[in-house]
C-alpha cells in the first residue's frame, strides 16, 4: 500500500540531457570544475549547505535554508524536473546551483549558493546553469529572481535581464526577471566562460568525493559585544573565542 502511495506522490521526471562538465581557471589560479550531480550525491552536499543557514550575512541564511529544502526535495523525489550542478576545486565544493524545467521552452532558476567568496565562483556557476538551459536544453528563456543585493547585481544588472513582473516565480513573491536567448548570446563572450572537455584527472578528482568547503562564508564579528565588554567581560570572551575558531 505504502509503495503504491509513493508512486502517486513521486513526480515523473522528463528525460533530460546531462550538463557536460566544464572547467575554468579562477583568479587564484585554481581550476574549478562545474558538473551535474546526481541524487545519490545530495547527502554529501547537504551538511555543507546546512552550516550556511546560520550565517546571517548577505542573505546566506535564507538562501541556504531554501537550497537545503530544494536539494532534499530533489533527493526524495518531491520536485519535478529539477537538476543540480556543483562547482568544485580539487574536490572541495565551492558552489551549488539548481533549477527546474517548467516546460520545453521555459526554465526556472532556483538558487546559486557560493561557498567560497571573492573569486566569481558563484557567478561562474550561475553562468553554467544558464548555459544548461540555453545551450543544452535549448530553452527560450529562464525565469530568475534574486534574494540578495549581490545576486541582483550579478544577474539582473550584469546580464541586463528583462522584467517579467507579471509572471509568478516558483520561489514566491519576488518579481520575476528573464534571461532570453538574445541576452544570453550577448553575455556569451564576457560572462559565460569555461573549457571542455575537462581533463580526466581533474574530473576524476571532482567525482571522487565532495569535500567540505575550506573557507566558507562566516558570520560578521560581534562588535556590539566588544563595546559592551568594558563592563561585560563575556563580550570579549565571545570575540576571543570566535577569533580562535576563525584561526587567528
Amino acid at each position: 500500500m505504502s509503495i503504491d502511495l509513493e508512486k502517486i506522490l513521486r513526480p515523473v521526471d522528463m528525460v533530460l540531457p546531462e550538463f557536460p562538465a566544464k572547467y575554468m581557471t579562477l583568479s587564484n589560479g585554481q581550476e574549478m570544475v562545474v558538473r551535474q550531480v546526481n541524487r545519490d550525491e545530495i547527502p554529501d552536499i547537504l551538511p555543507h549547505v546546512e552550516k550556511l543557514m546560520h550565517v546571517e550575512r548577505d542573505y546566506y541564511h535564507i538562501v541556504a535554508a531554501r537550497v537545503y529544502a530544494e536539494l532534499l526535495a530533489y533527493y526524495t523525489y518531491r520536485v519535478q524536473d529539477e537538476y543540480v550542478l556543483a562547482a568544485q576545486v580539487d574536490g572541495e565544493i565551492v558552489a551549488v546551483v539548481n533549477g527546474r524545467i517548467v516546460n520545453p521552452d521555459i526554465g526556472m532558476s532556483f538558487h546559486t549558493l557560493s561557498m567560497r567568496r571573492g573569486l566569481r565562483v558563484g557567478a561562474h556557476a550561475f553562468a553554467a546553469k544558464m548555459e544548461y538551459h540555453m545551450d543544452i536544453l535549448k530553452q527560450k528563456e529562464v525565469l530568475i529572481v534574486a534574494e540578495s543585493p549581490i545576486g541582483f547585481r550579478r544577474w539582473m544588472i550584469e546580464y541586463k535581464l528583462e522584467k517579467r513582473f507579471h509572471i509568478p516565480h516558483e520561489l514566491g513573491g519576488c518579481p520575476s526577471w528573464s534571461l532570453t536567448r538574445n541576452l544570453f548570446d550577448n553575455a556569451r563572450n564576457t560572462l559565460v566562460v569555461g573549457r571542455r572537455p575537462v581533463p580526466e584527472k581533474l574530473l576524476a578528482k571532482a567525482h571522487d568525493a565532495i569535500l567540505p568547503p575550506t573557507d566558507p562564508p562566516k558570520p560578521p564579528e560581534d562588535l556590539l559585544a566588544a563595546t559592551r565588554s568594558m563592563l561585560d567581560n563575556t563580550g570579549t570572551s565571545l570575540i576571543d573565542m570566535r577569533r580562535k575558531l576563525g584561526g587567528m
Binding site: 575554468m24 581557471t25 583568479s27 589560479g29 567568496r117 573569486l119 561562474h124 564576457t190 576563525g246
Partner: peptide
C-alpha cells in the same frame, strides 16, 4: 592579516593569462 578585507590569493594566470582572465578581471 586577519583584519584584511580580501583573503584570497590571486595569480597572474588567473587575472591576466588564462582564457577566463577577462571575465575574472574585467
Amino acid at each position: 592579516n586577519f583584519y584584511a578585507h580580501l583573503h584570497e590569493e590571486i595569480t597572474l594566470e588567473g587575472i591576466l593569462d588564462s582564457p577566463e582572465a577577462s571575465t575574472n578581471n574585467p
